[in-house]
Write a protein that binds this DNA or RNA. Structure first.
Lengths: 266, 266
DNA sequence: TCTACTCGCGAACACTGTTCGTGTCAAGTA
DNA sequence: TACTTGACACGAACAGTGTTCGCGAGTAGA
């Protein structure tokens, strides 16, 4: 990244358009003017997030980079949230779609795609933070969901398990990426950078009164052990292997065994 | 405060104090004045969050409820983040500690505790949102972590798996609670309230071009099926059962089978 | 060419977290 | 008891935020 504006010109909007969700509000019709367009705004915003992080993304700053005022952006996006939503979908478009290959090892394909997703999210600093509860309906998110569902169904996983499992995977991937991005924003990019921080935590755990915290003291090394990659691998394996047990019919129906479904409700 | 000051007087700070983490910054010594104290600030802030949500929690509003100015709060908390951190720990203190009972069914104990955690978080609107990357070091969080580790280790789970699994469980619980709390803040408290929203999503999926989204169209019902409780049960079972396989030695060391650890790194 | 109307956007509003410096009060000393 | 000292509370201000209003410029139609 040489500091110029020519960074990442590869548009991540593939294929033809998808019908817009009917509840997506657009305040005005897109203007016919030259310099401004939804794409231009998104690319500028993305450049800003990549350079300075999500906190630095203000409507004013985006407008400034485009040589205009903040009010002009509201012609293309109802509010900041909508801009962020489309920004995220733009980034999701960078994730390679999972495709079941000749090997037939669907679990490997799914895991690989989890790693791909994580890599893309982390390549855009803390943008993942905006990926929250809103069920994603952008064109690229739909495309990715479709591809992943194809793999899972192709593996013989029941529809309900595939749908919920897919949900769960995104949740874990996003949550892990958010956590990692926060570490990065605290200056702990590499394992080497994180080491002093982890050492501090470990020493604190070890220094606790051993009579009241015997396990925490004993496990201080284990608690702070392992790189972010290793922990992510652990989480993904735990989940995908669990899904695999549903696919092969080896599942023990545990939800019924220890079943207090709804036990946590108010 | 004529009638409101008697709300939730149950302090959730059990037992004696724990040594404060050395890097916790405190700007000034706590004042000797009557009306203000860290506890009073936290209780006021919690009342505010419970009533109006996390977004409504501003230093100004808290100060106003205490009959003072915003600057006064900075005598007890270095900044808003520190207030939030302690607020969260105050709430974590409401979660019952998991204890291995006579039945010896540790998995049931762990799952029950997951439900308990979720219930407590959801009882405080969207306060969970503040539970992010910072490894929790508050006294109540430590107490909970210790109890949970005791259960996991008692079940014969290896230290590394227990530590990482515990991490993963908090991540899933928090992520799920955040998602649920966002739904609630959108006015979709109960299953009945959420039904129209889910129907909208389902119809949108079903309306997609079937040639490009065959799976999404076919799975529209499955994707929107199930209550929040059922989905949470699915996630927790998936995870705890996975951990159980580590405990009994039946684990297939899958991280080595499909092992591209670090494959997603840059 | 003149009118009509659409749309970009400067300025303003109400809010945020945080800091500075002042005024006040309580404890310590003579 | 009277004075001094120092610490503490907090009003006011600063630099920022997302969003809205309405003026004025510029294009399209007559």
């Amino acid at each position: 990244m040489p500091s110029s504006s020519a960074v990442v010109e590869t548009s991540a909007l593939h294929g033809s358009a998808v019908p817009a969700p009917p509840w997506r509000t657009r305040r005005k019709a897109p203007a016919a003017r030259q310099p401004l367009s939804a794409e231009a705004v998104i690319e500028t915003a993305l450049r800003l997030v990549d350079r300075d992080g999500l906190d630095a993304l203000s409507m004013r700053r985006v407008a400034q980079d485009l040589g205009t005022g903040p009010a002009s952006l509201y012609a293309y996006f109802a509010n900041k949230d909508e801009l962020l939503e489309q920004l995220l979908d733009r980034v999701v478009g960078e994730i390679p779609l999972p495709v079941l290959d000749a090997s037939g090892d669907w679990a490997a394909v799914v895991k690989r795609s989890c790693w791909d997703s994580r890599a893309v999210f982390l390549a855009h600093r803390d943008l993942v933070k905006v990926a929250r509860a809103n069920i994603p309906v952008g064109p690229n998110s739909l495309r990715y969901t479709e591809a992943m569902l194809a793999v899972l169904r192709g593996a013989g996983i029941p529809d309900k398990v595939a749908a919920w499992g897919m949900d769960q995977m995104s949740l874990v991937i996003v949550a892990d990426a958010v956590e990692t991005s926060i570490h990065v924003s605290h200056g702990r990019q590499s394992e080497a950078d994180a080491a002093p921080y982890l050492a501090q935590i470990r020493d604190y755990y070890a220094s606790l009164p051993v009579d009241r915290f015997p396990n925490l003291v004993a496990m201080a090394p284990a608690m702070t052990e392992g790189s972010g990659d290793e922990r992510f691998a652990f989480a993904i394996d735990l989940m995908v292997d669990g899904l695999a047990r549903h696919a092969t019919g080896r599942v023990v129906e545990s939800s019924r065994v220890s079943g207090f479904v709804g036990g946590g409700g108010k």
